[in-house]
Design a binder for these strands. Structure first.
Length: 531
RNA sequence: GCGGGUAUAGCUCAAUGGUAGAGCACUAGCCUUCCAAGCUUGUGACGAGGGUUCGAUUCCCUCUACCCGCUCCA
């Protein structure tokens, strides 16, 4: 996507972390994560091989390294209360890594220094100059590779929604509140892609931008804004909801979704970001986490982002991102001047405080608040947004981790073997049902089983298997995580009386339980389990 | 990008400076009346490039991918 999109979204400026490396341990950390330190710095202009070592015909490479290292300066911040010798030890380590066997330090000087971030707090060793590490991949679109052709691979799908916001509003006749969602690839130049597919440079992201009215608009149309409190009814949206209720609503909705595919509260965790953790434009953000085997980590973030994104795009593109709300204008027209003045006064004090936080004068905030209210009374505003943003790969990984189980089985000979069962919730199981004839050399059973398979496969992901023994086929499906097994036996074809005709064995994956079920009941039962 | 490790069949592992084996899985057939029985059959691999050598999967170099550590937030 065009660089200006990412300029407007703030990614070009903020999605870049300055990184520094420790020259001795090679450890890489974010420059702004290094604690500022004060103390005495020992500096050396270089090092050479201690006399005698090179002469002894030790290693020619060592002698060459001595020449190279003679002009390489290095410094160490002496830890408080430690002897200078400890700093020299670190320096010797540094020069040894450059090929010297027994370095002799040259040109030692000392100086005191205040609040520096140039040294590794762990060992005092000098760090490299900060190098920007941009999390966005860039490329060139078109035949020439000049700056004008530069483009970024999107680091999130959300900005495409904002950039197209007006198109959607103008063409789909939606009224706020409404949502636009997108699923697709996103790319980030991660320093450390790890933990299987948990963090990867190319990932599948699902984002929803749910656009809502500013709280002030709700106040105009409904007199007041619903306040959230513990236990509030979030089952269905109400017209007097402001951003906080909508935010809680989406947290509840997303939680209900995770529950519906088997991710219970036992394996989920929530992190409500503290005011210090929040991005400056965000009003609230909650992370939904999953207890992975490698640690509890994030699946999804749900943020209340105010109108930051659309405002940014409006500012950078010069194109209005405002919507017109007839209901709001009608309600505003009915307000008397005192009621309007109260709304303006509240907005003024709130915006003034916000401006002060950002270091702008309060008067700027008040002026902006007045302009905002003036438009609001005409029914015009930039929508605010609630943004659930989830990683699909992460969810898939969570579902796999949760489903995986090992079961010990003892065979008739007494041998214990470990078998794998994927205990997927039926809604996410890749195969919902497998159909087997009890025996494959009995044409009547095979024909009947084929018939049942044909019946089921039109409605759900079904598998048919006649290879090996019946137990083996059950085991195969357990490993694939198929929740239901259907076996056609001699009862099914009526050999043991008319009562059992057209009934089958329904076998359950998780407990190997079997029950007798008429063929006509199979589909309704399974559809109920997966819908 | 830095440091360490790994790379042989779908999986787990062998062996070898001279035609690469097994178990499981998979395929086909026989058999089998409910939880990986048995017999027979078949498919299938040395990550890529270069070097040394009469000959390299094996020794050397380079590259690539993956794993672990450098802390990120989908």
């Amino acid at each position: 996507m065009h660089p200006n999109i990412w300029k407007a979204s703030g990614h070009v400026d903020t999605f870049s972390d300055p990184m520094v490396d420790c020259l001795v341990t090679k450890k890489r950390v974010r420059a702004d994560h290094v604690e500022p330190q004060s103390g005495v710095v020992y500096k050396w202009s270089g090092a050479t091989e201690i006399q005698g070592v090179a002469d002894a015909g030790e290693l020619p490479t060592s002698a060459l390294a001595a020449i190279d290292a003679a002009g390489v300066s290095f410094s160490v911040l002496l830890a408080k209360g430690k002897p200078p010798e400890s700093a020299r030890k670190v320096a010797i380590q540094f020069y040894q890594q450059r090929g010297l066997k027994q370095p002799e330090l040259l040109g030692e000087t000392t100086a005191s220094i205040e609040n520096t971030r140039a040294f590794n707090p762990e060992n005092g060793a000098q760090l490299t100059e900060p190098k920007p590490f941009n999390l966005m991949f860039h490329t060139f679109v078109g035949a020439t590779a000049t700056d004008a052709d530069k483009a970024y691979l999107r680091p999130e799908t959300a900005q495409a929604i904002f950039a197209q916001f007006k198109n959607v509003v103008d063409s789909t006749r939606q009224k706020v509140p409404f949502g636009v969602c997108q699923i697709g690839k996103a790319f980030r130049n991660e320093v450390t892609p790890r933990n299987f597919t948990f963090r990867s440079r190319e990932f599948e992201q699902m984002e929803l931008e749910f656009f809502i009215k500013p709280d002030e608009a709700i106040r105009i149309t409904h007199g007041s804004v619903a306040q959230w409190s513990e236990g509030a009814d979030l089952s269905a949206p109400k017209p007097n909801w402001g951003w906080e209720m909508w935010h809680r609503y989406w947290v509840a909705q997303r939680t209900a979704y995770y529950h519906s595919i088997g991710l219970t509260d036992e394996v989920l965790a929530y992190h409500w970001q503290t005011p210090e953790e929040l991005a400056h434009y965000a009003r609230a953000c909650v992370d939904i986490l999953f207890k992975f085997p490698f640690g509890t980590d994030e699946l999804e973030g749900i943020a209340a982002r105010g109108n930051f994104d659309l405002s940014q795009h409006q500012e950078h593109s010069g194109k209005s991102q405002e919507v017109f709300d007839e209901e709001l204008r009608a309600a505003a027209n009915k307000l008397d001047e005192a009621a309007k003045a109260a709304i303006v006064a509240d907005a003024e004090s709130e915006w003034a405080a916000g401006a002060a936080k950002k270091g702008v004068s309060e008067e700027v905030g008040r002026t902006a608040a007045r302009a905002f209210c003036e438009k609001l009374f005409k029914g015009i505003y930039i929508p605010h947004v609630i943004e659930p943003s989830a990683g699909l790969d992460r969810l898939a990984l969570a579902v796999l981790c949760l489903a995986y189980s090992e079961v010990e089985k003892t065979d008739p000979k007494g041998n214990v073997e470990k078998v794998n069962v994927m205990r997927f919730h039926p809604r996410v199981a890749p195969i919902k049902v497998a159909v087997f004839p009890l025996l494959k050399n009995k044409p009547e059973l095979v024909a009947k089983a084929r018939g049942v398979y044909d019946l089921l496969k039109k409605h759900l992901a079904a598998d048919y298997d006649e290879g090996g023994s019946i137990g083996r086929r059950y085991a195969r499906q357990d490993e694939a995580g198929t929740p239901f097994g259907v076996t056609i036996d001699f009862d099914t074809i009526g050999e043991n009386g008319p009562d059992l005709l057209d009934t089958v064995t329904l076998r359950h994956r998780d407990d190997a339980r079997q029950e007798r079920v008429p063929i006509s009941e199979l589909l309704p039962r399974m559809l109920a389990a997966i819908s």
